[in-house]
């Protein structure tokens, strides 16, 4: 504790901030506590998330609510087959008044970017997004431009339709810190949704509760959360167990392990903890790992990871 400076965000304060954001989002989103928290986890972990579900389940709404709550700039890119990389990154336009080329930033230059139906566009355009997500920078016409922090991409894809889609390659899937499915609402939730929309759209009244600077502070606080050697051992043994399974064709990469640790650190902040519990790892294993695995036959990656999490012994409490 002594190593943390006075100005640094304390875990307790971080939990309060995150709680405010969650509450704010829930003014728009009914239920879906877990998804909301996962989305925030992805943001605090400094990664990007992938939401997969049918249209009309609130993916876009969640992204917008999140963007509004943190008070950053928000851009939405609707991915279509004819979208070009420059439509994302921006391009230089000749300014006839100044007789010079002027760079017009694309929608990627925002704090929060919603990449809607990301699997509808061509691999070439997808890869432009990939660079931005991976490096936090874009290269347009030979000039590299750094994106402003925080930079958070929420991508959605519709798993039900296949016509005219370009499924994301594994390498790109690997760059999302976690993936989640919205899931259908319960009856009570659905009724509540209707009730809230009776006289308009609540998102219009949504205001920011934290600012961009606080998001960066949260991300820094996340880095200070302690992951004990036992936690690292546990994550590695989990990756090894996945590798050892017969039905896994493409096992989890090392990056998956790194993301799992980072996401667990972020998750710990929600409870005001400055250390990771194996419970955090267990909770996040499916969202962080499942979308990266290539399965043999018709096996479901989420089921495989779930089984392992339930059966794999945690490292001994005594560490020597």
């Amino acid at each position: 504790m002594a190593s943390i400076t006075q100005e640094a965000l304390q875990p307790r304060r971080a939990a309060e901030l995150l709680d405010q954001v969650e509450k704010n989002i829930h003014r728009v989103i009914v239920g879906k506590d877990r998804i909301v928290r996962l989305a925030l986890t992805g943001m605090v972990a400094g990664g990007h998330i992938l939401l997969q579900d049918l249209p009309g389940t609130g993916k876009t709404l969640l992204a917008r609510a999140l963007a509004t709550s943190v008070g950053g700039t928000f851009r939405r890119i609707q991915f279509t087959p004819d979208l070009l990389p420059s439509d994302i990154t921006g391009s230089s336009i000749f300014n006839q008044k100044d007789l010079s080329f002027e760079f017009v930033p694309g929608p990627i230059f925002a704090h929060i970017v919603l990449a809607d139906e990301v699997n509808r566009t061509t691999p070439r355009t997808q890869s432009a997004l990939l660079e931005a997500m991976g490096e936090g920078q874009v290269t347009v016409e030979g000039t590299t431009r750094v994106l402003e922090r925080p930079f958070f991409v929420v991508a959605t894809q519709n798993p039900a339709e296949f016509h005219g889609t370009y499924p994301l390659p594994e390498s790109q899937l690997d760059r999302f810190v976690l993936a989640a499915e919205m899931g259908p609402p319960t009856d009570a939730e659905a009724i509540e949704v209707l009730a809230r929309r009776e006289h308009g759209d609540p998102i219009a009244e949504l205001a920011a509760v934290i600012d961009v600077g606080e998001v960066i502070e949260l991300q820094e606080a996340c880095l200070r959360v302690v992951a004990a050697p036992a936690i690292r051992t546990y994550i590695v043994s989990l990756l090894q167990a996945i590798r050892a399974r017969q039905d896994v064709l493409l096992p989890a990469s090392m990056r998956a392990g790194v993301y799992l640790q980072r996401a667990a650190q972020a998750w710990a902040l929600f409870e005001g903890r400055d250390f990771v519990l194996p419970d955090d790892v267990k909770l996040l294993a499916v969202p962080v790992l499942a979308h990266r695995l290539g399965m043999r036959g018709r096996g479901k990656a989420a089921d495989a990871v779930g089984e392992l999490v339930a059966s794999l012994p945690i490292p001994p409490l005594r560490q020597h």
Partner: peptide, 9 residues
């Protein structure tokens, strides 16, 4: 207490 010890040292 066990969690604090084992996972936070």
């Amino acid at each position: 207490a066990v969690n604090e010890g084992a996972y936070a040292g």
